[in-house]
Design a protein around this nucleic acid. Structure first.
Length: 656
DNA sequence: GCCAACGTTGGC
DNA sequence: GCCAACGTTGGC
């Protein structure tokens, strides 16, 4: 403790010399440099220094003998501390910070004067002169400076304060005289200032003595000179490294300090023969971004918490990241709607953010991100489906009809049905409607979607395809419609015949597609939007969509956009395809591997075995994963191909 | 559980 | 302040 105190005291004392210097004629300037320095000092002695003088004026004593200083410091410790504690810091803060050049570690005001210690005969920064004495001498240091790392630190600090001293120290100190004042820039005071940022005790220590420490270390370490002395060394090194930079004018010391301290990153570079930086981990390092000091928690840390990307700050659960497939998608058409314009204007931005964010799958986990609020709004849009890309309202659907611009009363306040995201919209249940409905007209009219066969049960046709399709119908949902809608619901639970449903599930890390066949007859394939959509940004390509709507579609192709993007998430996932389909319903589940997503899309093919298109079935067969449903459900056999398989097949890449 | 209605929010 | 539309509520 005493040592520490001494060290601490040393600093303040160091101050004395400077202050006293101008006052006392005693101080002798030997070198020209010194002379200059002396001048400077006399001329512009920073105000903040003055008070110190007064306090310490004890006389020029301090100046006179270093030893004395030391002893004094020991004795006076408490006293010294007091001084330091308040005023100096405040002063420093005020003056020092503004004037401090962090990079160089120089204080603008501070003259870099070197004073020659009368006794020692060394030139030093005035401040240093006293304190320096003890430290610099390697021989003494061990003696004087004891034992604890902290004490060491302090000592070092004293030394450090005079960066030059350090270098000197090994030699015995005279060398310092040669060195110009430059080093002194980092006055002990300054170091004090720095502490703000530093919380850790360790850091504190460092803070106090940054410069000195560095210096010492540098020599010690670099030169590898004094390990022995340094029995304390390890600690020294610790502080040396990073902490110093930010705080003290490491730069001032740069000349030599650079080697050691310089790299903020300082990952594990082994210091010469000494300790690895790694070892010294709680270090202060310089933030690459803001330049401020921060305690590095781990080796890779190069930025302070504030500057750190969120991802680093908080590890978000594995997410599926969607990449923008093509700019086209985003840029398609002009938007009439401001919102859309927004989206288009900054698609990437939103997209990435959102997508990253999406993952947890719970709609209501709002707490995650700060950005959540902003994201929230877009949460219902995948931005990739045709619905999301659609620019204009149909004007026919119920929601459109409800809009004031279409003469509605705005009771519903919902987006045009056709613009309801197929995957993210909460209207999924309805959305099924939406999905079907939009397609319905096509069915009726142009039934020929590419791959599909129409399979819709006649009844459905009966139903008004979509209320909104015809204005007449828009407003009225009759029972029929409702029924109709219900059938289309995802699960088909309510009414309808469920053909087969597939859904996406996500584990912590994995994503699976599950297909369930419930009822054959209905050839309709329906997506479970809820499942799908929910935060899972899987999307079905438009074509696919058509297909789905097409009842007896030979094959369903799904493009899972974005899946690829998160290799880290998906990549590790093993395929589960092999899972035997449970008797009946669950045909298969397959995790999506990144393999699948070569182009950025995950393609999944679902084939009905019953009426398989030749090629599809074949492929399916090729793939191991092809699963046939037991005869209980004769017609419906669904095979799922994993994306990987497809990718291997590459047949489907065409979609992309 | 569905859905109409509406409060509210975010962007402009 | 307007508009779009999201999220919630309550009736059914």
């Amino acid at each position: 403790m005493t040592d520490e105190l001494n060290g601490a005291s040393a600093e303040p004392e160091s101050m004395k010399p400077e202050e006293t210097v101008p006052i006392d004629a005693d101080v002798v300037i030997k070198d020209v440099d010194n002379a200059v320095a002396g001048k400077v000092m006399t001329e512009s002695l920073p105000d903040w220094l003055k008070p110190m003088e007064e306090d310490e004026d004890d006389g020029g004593e301090g100046v006179k003998s270093s030893e004395r200083i030391i002893t004094k410091t020991n004795d006076d410790v408490p006293k010294v501390k007091r001084r330091r504690g308040r005023p100096p810091i405040a002063r420093n803060v005020r003056h020092g910070l503004t004037r401090l050049d962090f990079k160089k570690g120089l204080h603008a005001d501070r003259p870099k004067t070197e004073t020659v210690h009368p006794v020692l005969g060394r030139t030093r920064s005035s401040q240093i002169s006293r304190t320096a004495v003890p430290v610099p001498d390697p021989a003494r240091t061990p003696e004087v400076l004891p034992r604890k790392p902290q004490s060491i630190i302090h000592n070092s600090t004293s030394t450090s304060q005079r960066p030059r001293l350090i270098p000197i120290s090994p030699a015995g100190g005279s060398s310092l005289s040669t060195t110009p004042n430059t080093e002194f820039h980092s006055p002990p005071r300054l170091t004090r200032v720095s502490p703000f940022s530093i919380d850790t005790s360790v850091t504190r220590n460092f803070v106090h003595t940054p410069a000195v420490k560095v210096g010492n270390v540098s020599q010690q370490i670099v030169s590898s000179t004094e390990p022995g002395k340094d029995g304390t060394e390890p600690p020294l090194q610790l502080w040396l490294c990073p902490s110093l930079e930010p705080i003290s004018p490491t730069k001032t010391q740069d000349t030599f300090s650079d080697q050691i301290v310089s790299s903020p990153n300082f990952p594990e570079t082994p210091l010469n023969g000494t300790v690895t930086r790694k070892e010294s981990l709680p270090l202060l390092s310089e933030c690459e971004s803001c330049g401020g000091p921060f305690p590095a928690q781990k080796i890779g840390d190069i930025m302070c918490y504030g500057c750190r990307p969120k991802s680093d700050k908080k590890q978000s659960p594995p997410n599926i990241v969607f990449r923008k497939v093509g700019q086209d998608q985003w840029e398609v058409g002009k938007t009439k709607h401001p919102r859309k314009q927004i989206l288009k204007q900054r698609p990437e931005y939103k997209k990435t953010i959102k997508m990253d964010f999406v993952p947890d799958g719970d709609d209501d986990d709002d707490d995650d991100d700060d950005d959540w609020v902003t994201k929230k709004r877009n949460r219902r849009m995948c931005r990739q489906c045709d619905a999301c890309l659609r620019e204009d309202d149909c004007g026919k659907c119920d929601f459109c009809a409800d809009k004031p611009k279409f003469g509605g009363s705005n009771k519903k306040k919902q987006k045009c049905r056709l613009r309801q995201c197929k995957f993210q919209s909460r209207l999924h249940g309805q959305r099924a409607n939406g999905m079907l409905k939009p397609s319905l007209p096509q069915r009726r009219r142009d039934v020929k979607p590419k791959l599909k066969k129409r399979g819709r049960p006649p009844r459905k046709q009966k139903f008004r395809s979509s209320p909104w399709e015809n204005d007449d119908e828009v407003s009225d949902k009759d029972e029929d419609d409702k029924e109709h809608l219900r059938r289309y619901k995802m699960n088909g639970r309510k009414g309808g015949r469920r053909k087969w449903n597939y859904s996406f599930k996500e584990d912590e890390e994995d994503m699976f597609i599950e297909a369930v066949i419930e009822d054959d007859r209905a050839s309709n394939t329906e997506e479970d939007p809820d499942i799908l959509g929910n935060q899972r940004s899987a999307m079905v390509s438009n074509e696919m969509y058509c297909n789905t709507s097409g009842l007896s579609a030979q094959g369903l192709y799904y493009n899972m956009s974005g899946v690829p993007a998160a290799p880290y998430v998906l990549g590790s996932v093993p395929l589960c395809n092999s899972n035997p389909a449970p008797m009946g319903e669950e045909i298969s589940s397959l995790p999506l591997g990144d393999d699948v997503t070569q182009n950025g899309f995950l393609q999944i093919e679902m084939v009905r075995v019953g009426s398989p298109p030749s090629h599809y079935t074949e492929e399916a067969q090729d793939t191991e994963q092809h699963v046939s449903v037991p005869q209980q459900e004769p017609t419906p056999v669904v095979s799922l191909f994993t994306a990987t398989q497809y990718s291997t097949n590459q047949r489907f890449n065409a979609f992309e």
